[in-house]
Amino acid sequence: MNKPLLSVENLRIEFPTRRGTLVAVDDISFTIDPGEILGVVGESGAGKSLTGQSIIGLLEPPGRIASGSIKLNDRRLDNLPYAQMKKIRGKEIGMIFQDPLTSLNPLYTIGRQLTETIQTHTDMTGKQAKKHAISLLEEVGIPAAAKRIDHYPYQFSGGMRQRVVIALALCVNPKLIIADEPTTALDVSIQAQIITLLKKLCADHGTAVILITHDMGVIAETADRVAVMYAGRLVEIGKVRQVVKEATHPYTKGLMSAIPSLTHRMEELTQIDGTMPRLSDIPKGCSFHPRCPECMDVCKEKQPELIDIGPTQVACWSYHDRQI
């Protein structure tokens, strides 16, 4: 069996506030193999982005990792000192943010931002770094890269800027990229291009990706596996085909049936009633039970563990007798 590239175990992220501690991410465990694309879906506030930020060590205070561990190639990251974590950021783990319009510093040319990043992590001279930067820009599909390298971010369109951002995240070949809603801020027509590009580049470079999004369509097309998050917990994780076709957790089923389909004519899209609970009043038992159509008595009392039922791992009492 292959050793996983990244393994997250029992991760718990807390926000100490004046009115008690809020648990934003609770007891999450998952692994990623080299070159694999893991989709992470969930509603806003489910803890997707926080999980991503904690992996790269950029949780914003007062948020903190309360327990659990994050290991990259068996090296623990969650308790690494600031100075050493800085060497991992960009070099071994890259990150892509949601909005390409604001991810680039408006006052510097994209060439400067690329060479700066390259030279931070390698011993390349200015000339070599520039050459490398141009080849990167060509690779992400920027026409006339040699000329465009001296342009400022405002001279690029949104899609082109996201390509530059991808080039920046990939510029020293990290093993893992955390893409936090990389297409949400883009035009629908551009989204597909960017996702295809990201997928191709990661395949070429053998880079693993954590793709955080709430777009199931993107996940279905791109990811190898998908993790579904709800109210800070992982409710289901498994191969993307399995999850899309035969979702097991009632929440995942709800998500899938809320996707409009071109092939099946439906009069109305189904929706999941209610809203996700606030972090300050997550219900006892399974946090999804107030909205769950299959709710049982046990769900209101005890929290289900994530269990392996063969095709997927799921945290739901309905499947507890099927545990392998």
Partner: peptide, 8 residues
């Protein structure tokens, strides 16, 4: 944030 994520 992006500059931090790039490890500058």
């Amino acid at each position: 944030k992006f500059a931090r994520a790039r490890g500058l």
